[in-house]
Design a protein around this nucleic acid. Structure first.
Lengths: 230, 230
DNA sequence: TTATTTGATTGATTTAAATCAACGCGTACC
DNA sequence: GGTACGCGTTGATTTAAATCAATCAAATAA
């Protein structure tokens, strides 16, 4: 059991662009203060507004991060694939979560004590740099999301979503969608009825092939044009 | 002249929550690699897409940061008051600016060599921590912006904008707006016609007093309710 | 001075997307 | 077996906000 955990930690170190700058002793430190947990689809990993005293690293599955809004729709601000740490500004701001994280597939995630991560950031400058780089990349993506959701029409937004899903989230084409239509809507800042209509249109125009949850991108170029033009 | 510049640098150190963790020698290092520049209202400080090889610290005036979008409206993602460093993910991602920065009032800003800042982040862990904290706060604000612009109706968005302007940007109430109606629209993700109508409504409902660019918030509480309810 | 431009404002019209409503289908559950 | 429930889909209707168009006022230039 203990061996298996350590095994996982080493695997993470190798395939994570943030943990691979840590020394063996530092990795061990992380190992001692983490818990690896399994989540079923739909289960909440953490909830917006709740105290955040740990960092989460997704080690298998798929996680959606969304902003909840009273009496209104949710907005998915990102999907996390392994092996990736979930950037949450909370621990550095007010020790509360600012988004909700939910498993979309069978998922395992490691919860790491916040103070350990902060210690590593203070002690290991390379780690701190990687950390800043990582959250900067996230910020750029957030800019894109804002831009997309506020300026583009539904076709552009759905095109954005599809180009985000492939190849970023689903590596192969065609792929089997593990997200619901509602998730796609929350990801595109619109209603599920609207996204269904847009996907239907894309299907009619031979931009995608769509049968239930099996999607194939047929014309990536055209999608990118639509995404750009809005 | 040199004395005056050094004076400015010390002033910054004292009143900035990020530069005040630097040692005197580190501040001097910054001092040697910076240029203090004056901008007139409307002048561009840096432009989205352009190479970013310096960091900007606003030392007087008011700066708007916005995302440009082809054939579409701009979206102001934040306003910067002195003394504040402009967080730009660019230097840590692809060495390009991801937003455009424009002076809204007579403004002075210091341009600091990017490699100096990166060096400071690597050498001074307290500085790195402050840096991370700062960009985390920005990320939270971005979440709010996304939430506001995608989920709320115009009244809620304008209420959000007004509560952002006072007391965050304009410290006194009443205050003289140095932003145009178009700026307010870009800040709320809508058209200038719409924001004019909403402001008129707020005026009629005695929530604000408005004459040309002179604004007084009369009912902050009501504004916050509107902002929350959307 | 008049002419010109720029920003603010108001009203009329259009439109994109949400909402509302209904139905089909598969799965879970009495 | 049938009933209930959730998810996906489709069509009809509504609506919030954009667009379009015109006017006004102030600032700037000729």
């Amino acid at each position: 059991m203990a061996l298996e955990i350590q095994n996982t930690c080493l695997a993470c170190k190798k395939s994570s662009d943030i943990f691979n700058v840590l020394s063996d002793s530092e990795i061990k430190e992380v190992d001692c203060h983490k818990a690896s947990i399994h989540y079923k689809p739909g289960e909440i990993i953490f909830k917006q507004g709740a105290p955040s005293n740990f960092f989460v690293c997704v080690t298998s599955g798929l996680v959606k991060l969304y902003i909840e809004h009273q009496n209104s729709r949710n907005l998915i601000i990102g999907l996390i694939r392994p092996i990736n740490y979930i950037f949450e500004p909370g621990p550095f701001v007010d020790q509360h979560h600012h988004v909700t994280a939910v498993a979309c597939e069978e998922t395992t995630a490691c919860l790491i004590d916040a103070h350990i991560m902060k210690e590593l950031i203070s002690k290991n400058t390379e780690f701190a740099n990687e950390f800043i780089r990582k959250i900067s990349v996230q910020a750029v993506r957030l800019f894109d999301r804002i831009s997309s959701c506020t300026q583009k029409h539904v076709y552009g937004r759905v095109a954005d979503t599809l180009t985000y899903l492939y190849p970023g989230i689903y590596a192969e084409n065609p792929f089997d969608l593990t997200l619901s239509r509602q998730d796609l809507a929350d990801l595109s800042g619109m209603t599920k009825e609207s996204i269904i209509r847009v996907l239907k249109k894309f299907k009619e125009e031979k931009i995608i092939k769509l049968e239930a949850n099996h999607i194939e991108i047929l014309d990536q170029e055209k999608l990118e044009v639509i995404a750009k033009k809005g």
